[in-house]
Design a protein around this nucleic acid. Structure first.
Lengths: 202, 202
DNA sequence: TTGACTTGACCGACCGGTCTAATATAATTT
DNA sequence: AAATTATATTAGACCGGTCGGTCAAGTCAA
């Protein structure tokens, strides 16, 4: 059981790294197995298919993410608007570290997979969408608190939260295309300037 | 010559559609050839490799794009800030039309390819980056004119232009993940709220 | 006759996935 | 506690299919 759990974990972490660093299609099961020191038979004992592995990796990463720097960034102790900066910083340092290590900016695993797979696999698309929805909720929370504290004028906090997430993903996309994490640093802070006003009551 | 040009064009348009609708890795040369009514030998007469095809598709699309709705959107006759709305609208209608036709939102070909391939192929990455740089220049232009006309307070127009492009890409990414073009309509207009201030002179 | 273009059979490599047999590990019976 | 059974895991050879790409022989216009 201990050994088994370890094998499964090794597959997951290896697959996550490879998918993130390259792409879903570009990484073969054989390669994952080799790097994880696992035989093919073992792999297919734990995962019915590559597709299922992808979903497991998404869940795994989402979990790590939610309990990792996203949890830190959106820590209630921080002033709401500072959480946005914290989030941007976290993205920057993460991408910078990855680039220093591997030479390339991997970008956001969810964004990557979304654009690569979501036209072909409805289930995976929905899965990634759920991750985004959850992330957006954190922004939403922070915005509501900021408004409540009088840090910013009232606005459509839900739409703005989604817009901020979109912006963050867009910045990461552009930074990856330039292979330059500094883009995140330069453009990221402007996330606070995004505003969608409340629909005027009829 | 006429026939040949036609064959090459058929390959390009077919490949562009397929790459855009699915992904680079997911579309095989055989499939492209079948749909384009071309034999494999002919294909390799025009394109040395799949990779070269991808680059040709990028150039082809960038050209179409630049002379198509981007040219319209950034027509100098339009007031600068309205060009942004025009651009957002164009994206919306395009994506909506594609979804109504195929059932899925294809997103932005350049964004898709960037996230899928740019970690693996430096040349293609640079190519897509160039397209983005060019697009960003259009935003830059519009912003400068807007400032000049007094439509908006002075700002770091270059950085803001890049940020706006990032936002647009991010919105498209999110909309694709939700498979819902309406996201573009809802979030798109907020592009005008993005601001990056000028660095204060030392 | 030349050279651009087409045809389609063909190639080795690799893909995701299967299968059978061996081997640990745990549960059950005696 | 030992023996037995059941089950979870590992091992890796193997499979059909598809991939990007090659090639030799042809067609056709200039």
């Amino acid at each position: 059981m201990n050994v088994a759990a370890d094998t499964k974990e090794r597959i997951l972490t290896t697959a996550r790294e490879l998918f993130h660093g390259r792409s879903y299609a570009d990484v073969g099961i054989k390669e994952i197995c080799t790097l994880a020191n696992v035989q093919k038979g073992s792999f297919y004992h734990f995962f019915p298919s590559k597709r299922d592995l992808a979903m497991a990796v998404i869940d795994y990463m989402a979990d790590d993410w939610a309990h990792g720097f996203v949890a830190e960034a959106f820590d209630g102790a921080l002033p709401p608007l500072e959480r946005l900066d914290y989030m941007v910083d976290a993205v920057y340092y993460w991408q910078k570290a990855a680039k220093d290590l591997e030479g390339r900016m991997p970008g956001c695993l969810f964004g990557n997979l979304a654009l690569e797979i979501s036209t072909r696999d409805e289930v995976i698309r929905a899965r990634i969408n759920a991750v985004f929805t959850k992330a957006s909720a954190r922004f939403h929370e922070a915005l509501d608190q900021a408004v409540e504290r009088g840090d910013m004028a009232p606005l459509d906090s839900q739409a703005t939260a989604t817009a901020m997430l979109a912006y963050l993903e867009g910045v990461i996309l552009l930074a990856k295309t330039r292979n330059d994490p500094e883009v995140v640093r330069q453009l990221g802070p402007a996330i606070k300037s995004i505003r969608i006003e409340l629909k005027p009551p009829n």
